[in-house]
């Protein structure tokens, strides 16, 4: 998670308008989810891999590692869909199966196809989200949300939570170092005790910090709403045309394939 955050601030697409990146990721994701042909999912996966590794300059190794995180999770999910259970017995649609006392458990062609389709679709959608989170820092995402007129309470919370995750982590790190330098994690028993104490300390610190933050905000004229300005980004006509071309190509391909399948 932290690694993703680091890349978000340091990639070749950092200075592209966040709305353009968000638009690209979201439209592609909807296309991927909207069309059921696996080919579209493959196309989206390849497109996003090219955008992330090729355009944004995220190392391929890192990207593969990130993709492998949902991979296993999705595989397990897809397997449960692939497996069918019936009391009707095995017919031509079955690939393999075992029957025990009238109940058949096994794989059907249809089930396998659904699972495969779902798997690719999810992976495609995930790669769209990865594109967004690897190229766009959280603060710029909230700037986009502000532009899209999402309720300010939600945006303020996102901003504050994001900021204080790091403050918390730093504090936890300091406490951990100070504990372990005094043998706080030498055995299982002391580890449990140290962890408990750290949690309590973190809670107290969080409370203290929120009070200090409120004071600091108030001293700058806070009256219940956090108003901020995002830096101005330049809209690139080229990028918008490029995105439009890619998305419409994807859409036309999808429609043609879909029509071809029905016809």
């Amino acid at each position: 998670m932290l690694n993703i955050d680091g890349f978000a601030y340091n990639n070749r697409l950092r200075h592209v308008h966040p709305l353009e990146k968000a638009g690209f990721a979201m439209i592609t994701m909807f296309l991927c989810l909207g069309f059921s042909l696996p080919v579209i999912s493959y196309l989206v996966i390849i497109l996003m891999a090219a955008a992330i590794v090729g355009c944004a300059g995220i190392p391929l190794k890192i990207y593969l590692k990130l993709m492998s995180l949902p991979f296993t999770f999705l595989l397990i999910g897809a397997l449960t869909i692939a497996v069918s259970v019936t009391t009707q017995g095995v017919d031509a649609g079955w690939l393999a199966g075992i029957t025990v006392s009238g109940i058949t458990v096994g794989l059907t062609y249809n089930g396998l196809a659904t699972a495969g389709g779902l798997f690719c679709k999810s992976l495609g959608a995930v790669s769209c989200l990865y594109f967004l989170s690897l190229t766009t820092p959280a603060v710029e995402m909230t700037a986009v949300m502000r532009k899209l007129k999402i309720p300010s309470l939600f945006i303020e919370l996102t901003d504050l939570v994001y900021r204080f995750i790091f403050v918390m982590l730093e504090t936890a790190d300091d406490i951990y170092i100070s504990q372990s330098s005094r043998w706080g994690y030498a055995s299982l028993k002391t580890s449990m005790k140290s962890l408990g104490q750290m949690t309590a300390a973190l809670f107290v610190k969080a409370l203290h910090r929120s009070r200090m933050l409120f004071i600091a905000l108030s001293s700058r004229g806070y009256t219940g709403q956090i108003n901020v300005l995002a830096p101005e980004y330049t809209v690139s006509v080229n990028n918008i045309i490029l995105i439009a071309v890619i998305e419409s190509t994807l859409l036309i391909t999808a429609v043609l394939l879909e029509v071809g399948k029905i016809g």
């Binding site: 820092p137 959280a138 603060v139 901003d159 504050l160 994001y162 900021r163 790091f166 933050l213 600091a216 905000l217 700058r220 806070y222 956090i226 108003n227 901020v228 300005l229 995002a230 830096p231």
Partner: peptide, 13 residues
């Protein structure tokens, strides 16, 4: 004192 992750947003408050 710093409530925002963005330096620019922070100063504009």
């Amino acid at each position: 004192q710093l409530f925002s992750a963005s330096v620019y947003q922070e100063i504009s408050f």
